[in-house]
Simulated assay, not measured.
Amino acid sequence: MTEFTPDLGERPASLDGLRDAIPACDRVAYFNTGATGPSPDRVLDAAAAWERFHKVDVLADADPYEVAFAEYERLRERLAEFLGVDADRLGLVESTADGLSAVVAAYDWDPGDVVVRTDLEHPAGTLPFDRLARRHGVEVRVVEAPAGRIDTDAFADAVADAEMACFSSLSWNYGTRLPVRELCEIAADAGAFSLVDAVQSPGQRPLELPEWGADAVACSGHKWCLGPWGSGLLAVDPAVDDDLSPAQVSYRSVDDAMADDYDLKPGGARFERGTASLAPHVGLREAVETLETVGLDAVHGRVLDLAGRLTDRLDDDRLLSPAEPESGLVTVDVTDPEATVDRLHDEGLVIRDIPDPQAVRASVHAFNTEAEVDRLATALNEEP
């Protein structure tokens, strides 16, 4: 069978090489990876090469469905390895929001059921539950986590009679790491399903998802992994398969689409649908292998070093994130967040504003430089 093996040249093997491989770095000092990361040329080339391969070469030499379905499985195995999970646990979905909402919609809900989430969640982790409250009479309890810190006793009280608990592995608004394993254990002790939004974690540091003990984890490749949009991943523990009946079923979510009575695939694959483009996940595979060639430990160390350099140079009364960073996300108090984003953009510095807290957030990745970090700190300290 025809197999996709693009020739993209040698991967960068150093942090400097990673930066050189990212064309956006030639144009701007980019500090918004927590929203979407800038991709290396080879990631974009891999995605484009797949499209040409599949829509030109394969059409002349093989069955496009057979080739595509074989590639789905190759991608699943490789990306599962990156997350430290078994391949039969992983589904290739569109985004973190896609994975989270699919799991929530697959659960069997009754009026009066209880869901617990934190007040740190992105809309991807709030809107599915708002819909449950509106459409199914589900009670949504929100556990406060001031400055990105959750009180595990308060969480345990809230989840004691809950059906599901949803929380982030890393807060998108403060950059704090949540005690995911402990929260999952608390949920399990209460008999609640644990759903983790891990969108900010992959690409910042090595991950072994089984260590968390979560029932389901959703994440994406377009942020810190530097992959394309559309490269979502959903890891589901097969032990909870009986609890999840997807709202949408298609031929990629079942074992045999031609059978008289279908059986859903195990794990996250039951949430896959029809002829979705493979290009985003092909690009993500290349992004993952690029980061692994550079070294995920080296990336993680550089992220924390540069984030620490930024917090050390910011005025103390402006810093809303931990003074000793736990991630590459650094949140800063300014008088007018939107105006600050615009001003810094004019100076060639890209950050973003966030709504809660009303502030600006810088995302510091390993491709950034010390000089860029110093420029950013100076520009932020110049706020009135």
Rank of each mutant, 00 (worst) to 15 (best):
G230V: 02
R285F: 02
V288C: 05
L314C: 04
R361T: 09
L304F: 06
L319H: 12
A279Q: 04
G348T: 00
A257E: 14
E347Q: 07
V299P: 03
D342P: 01
P246W: 08
E347C: 02
A307F: 07
G232A: 08
V332F: 01
R273I: 13
G232N: 06
A298E: 12
L320T: 11
D261S: 10
A287N: 04
A307P: 07
L344A: 02
R270A: 15
A339D: 14
V341N: 01
V254F: 08
T331C: 13
D353C: 15
L306N: 03
G274M: 13
R285I: 00
D255E: 14
L291T: 03
V254Q: 10
V334E: 03
G230T: 04
R273S: 13
D260R: 12
V254T: 15
L319S: 15
D336H: 10
G274R: 15
D356S: 09
R309P: 00
V334T: 04
L264N: 11
S253L: 12
R252L: 15
T275Q: 11
D297E: 14
G348A: 02
W229Y: 07
R361N: 02
Q358R: 12
P228T: 00
R270S: 08
L306T: 05
E289Q: 11
L291D: 01
E292S: 09
E286W: 00
E347S: 01
G232H: 06
V249E: 07
A276P: 03
L349F: 04
D237Y: 01
D261H: 14
P228W: 00
